[in-house]
């Protein structure tokens, strides 16, 4: 099974709302040798984007979309359970937050999982995080990197507020700020305007960019 076939089968399962079928597809894809990164970026992500597109086409409802997302979150947590390793030592830390107020967090979750599998320590704050809370966690954890994601275009300005706030807190040795998410997908250059050091089109891309930057 290649990732395209797996994606089609997975999409079918989550459209039907069948958790069992979805888990079987994932298990089959794992047996066929797909890595966690491939499953996340080439199976789950396009399947969920297709679900979003189907909503826009009025083919499915928000309830279907929520169900598909919930199944995918469970599939990711199961995969993480199978693949997690413990690296020991003092790993680089990343703090992840959504600039959105609503719950659009699955892409960021993917980034955290993939980084953890590479030996990072991640602190996932999710959606609806205000600057005060972000700054508090950054002050406590002194991360080497911060990932900010944004799904809804009208939340883009929050990226600037958050990145400025973090840099003001750690002017000497500021963490690397990486931004991504659907709102930046078509115009990734916007990320730099909103204060990013790095941007990425998907979670795997983000892992590569962060690994390269940390090794510098």
């Amino acid at each position: 099974m290649d990732s395209k076939k797996a994606c089609d089968a997975y999409l079918g399962a989550i459209r039907r709302g069948s958790r069992k079928d979805a888990m079987e597809v994932v298990a089959g894809a794992r047996e066929a040798g797909l890595s966690a990164g491939e499953l996340y970026v080439e199976v789950f992500q396009p399947a969920l984007r297709e679900i979003g597109r189907l909503w826009q086409e009025n083919e499915i409802s928000v309830a279907d979309e929520h169900l598909a997302t919930a199944i995918t979150q469970s599939a990711m947590a199961n995969l993480f359970d199978q693949l997690a390793t413990s690296h020991g030592g003092s790993p680089p830390t990343l703090i992840a937050a959504c600039a959105d107020v609503e719950k659009h967090e699955i892409g960021l979750r993917m980034l955290c999982d993939l980084l953890e599998l590479e030996g990072w320590e991640t602190i996932y704050l999710g959606a609806g995080v205000d600057l005060e809370r972000l700054v508090e966690v950054v002050r406590k954890e002194q991360p080497v990197a911060i990932a900010l994601s944004v799904t809804m275009a009208h939340h883009l300005p929050r990226l600037k507020v958050m990145s400025d706030g973090v840099r003001a807190l750690m002017p000497e040795n500021p963490p690397v700020i990486i931004m991504g998410g659907r709102a930046l997908l078509e115009r990734p250059e916007l990320a730099l305007e909103y204060g990013a050091d790095l941007t990425a089109s998907d979670a795997r891309d983000a892992v590569r960019a962060l690994q390269a930057r940390v090794r510098e």
Partner: peptide, 16 residues
């Protein structure tokens, strides 16, 4: 669901 998934991850990490 989110809490459950986060807890599962924490448990996985702790187990490892």
């Amino acid at each position: 669901n989110a809490t459950l998934n986060a807890t599962q991850r924490e448990l996985s990490k702790e187990k490892r």
